[in-house]
């Protein structure tokens, strides 16, 4: 967003598409799916609050540019095939 009072728009709007704002860096834990155990129920896809899971052939495909590592997917997984791994490891 432009800075000075003469540059900012009169209406407070944000013209940047939110997909361009990469928020994956906020993540402390990264979800990893063991696709061998995945039953493709897509509960993770349904519950992801940041729309960061796509439906893949073998299981969830994570958008790590936007996933904030909240762990909801791991929590709702009925077969517990999603593990949260610390990012600094």
């Amino acid at each position: 967003m432009p800075g000075t009072i003469d540059e900012i728009p009169i209406t407070p709007i944000n013209t940047t598409n939110s997909t361009a704002v990469k928020t994956g860096g906020w993540r402390a834990f990264r979800p990893i799916c063991d696709t061998d155990k995945c039953i493709k129920c897509w509960s993770c896809w349904k519950f992801c609050p940041d729309v960061s899971i796509a439906i893949g052939e073998d299981g969830p495909i994570y958008d790590y540019d936007h996933c904030k590592g909240c762990g909801i997917c791991a929590n709702v997984c009925p077969v517990k095939c999603i593990e949260m791994i610390p990012e600094n490891k």
């Binding site: 800075g3 009072i5 900012i8 009169i10 407070p12 709007i13 944000n14 013209t15 940047t16």
Partner: peptide
Amino acid sequence: PKGFGSLVMPPQYMEFRANMARS
């Protein structure tokens, strides 16, 4: 599509308010 009413940080909020005062 554009975002309306989104968050601004302290370095910008004051400019929006000053803009209202100018109007």
